[in-house]
Nucleic acid binder design. Sequence first.
DNA 1: GCCCTAAAGCTAAGCCACCTAGCCAAGGTT
DNA 2: AACCTTGGCTAGGTGGCTTAGCTTTAGGGC
Lengths: 191, 191
Amino acid sequence: MPRVGLNQQTVVREAARLADEVGFQQLTLAALASRLGVALPSLYKHVRGADALAQKIAALATAELATEMTAAAVGRSGGEALRAMADAYRDYALRHPGRYPATQRVPDPADPEHVEAGERAVGAIVAVLRGYGLTGDDAVDATRALRSALHGFVTLEAAGGFGLPRDVGRSYHQLVAGLDISFRSWPRTGG
Amino acid sequence: MPRVGLNQQTVVREAARLADEVGFQQLTLAALASRLGVALPSLYKHVRGADALAQKIAALATAELATEMTAAAVGRSGGEALRAMADAYRDYALRHPGRYPATQRVPDPADPEHVEAGERAVGAIVAVLRGYGLTGDDAVDATRALRSALHGFVTLEAAGGFGLPRDVGRSYHQLVAGLDISFRSWPRTGG
DNA sequence: GCCCTAAAGCTAAGCCACCTAGCCAAGGTT
DNA sequence: AACCTTGGCTAGGTGGCTTAGCTTTAGGGC
């Protein structure tokens, strides 16, 4: 039996690719194993199990998303930064329909890379909000609002929740424009 | 073998109750059957299978949510209606953590009650937006924004995505306040 | 160059979920 | 009373995930 030469990274990357094709929920160890040219139990040499694999995909996807959000916002500020970051966010979700849902998994404290990726993602948002003068509790509230709006939108879009013919991209831009207005007039609690 | 006297409604209602206890994803036909005092295959006399059951729970939950949203908005308008409806929305999600995710399933065209429930839910939102003078394409965009924001928030909240100690209810109220501001200054495209 | 060992692969087997087939009894209808 | 619909059942099959335990590869030390 010739060795395929897998390691955790190759397994997780291929799993992420497969998830993008078939959907995160439909990702199965059996399909992944056959894709990698290996019998199913062999995967356990590289990954602890299905849940651990999901967590690793989450760490990967969160890191990728954080990187793209950060890249979009760099060199911009205020509404421009917000729009660029929001576009990058939706872009990622559309390009990676399988990985995206994984990004919402709460980071595993036992996985430093996952934790760090989550912090980078939130950090990107906080940096943009600072451009609106939002800090402290205000920034926490605004971060939650921004995450909710973007996540909710791309989730509903992916689920086919927007049935009407109205262009979805336009709706997204309106949503982001609304966030811009909200953040500019966000009530300052001084927290 | 004494008959238990099940029918589709009792099965679906108990399934919804069970989902609220264990989570929508963790709902299993085996657990439901044992809860109903019946062997697993007997459920198939009332429900076509696991997916059909999920769809029926979705129809039930969507109808309940639509009713509560409508009730909250009745007799109110503008920001007051928006806040009441948003509170009802989050309330429902918190009270019914198992049913809530089902409400995001796109209505089954073959199930008139499901379709009608979905229309009532959207109708409640549209009615509130009319109080802001939003109609046509503007209303479509605003509906999508509102759904995204509320759904995203309660989803992240349920997933434990809000780690910081900052009070979640306050953040939600800020989010809704932001939506109020956005809708008041929503760009009118005259669509 | 040989051997030893860690690790990467394998087969076998068990658990649990969903689903189908086909049987039997309960209970209302004629 | 006989009948037939229907709601329950058992048995059995599929496809997930997982563990146990074996084999062989491949690399490092002598």
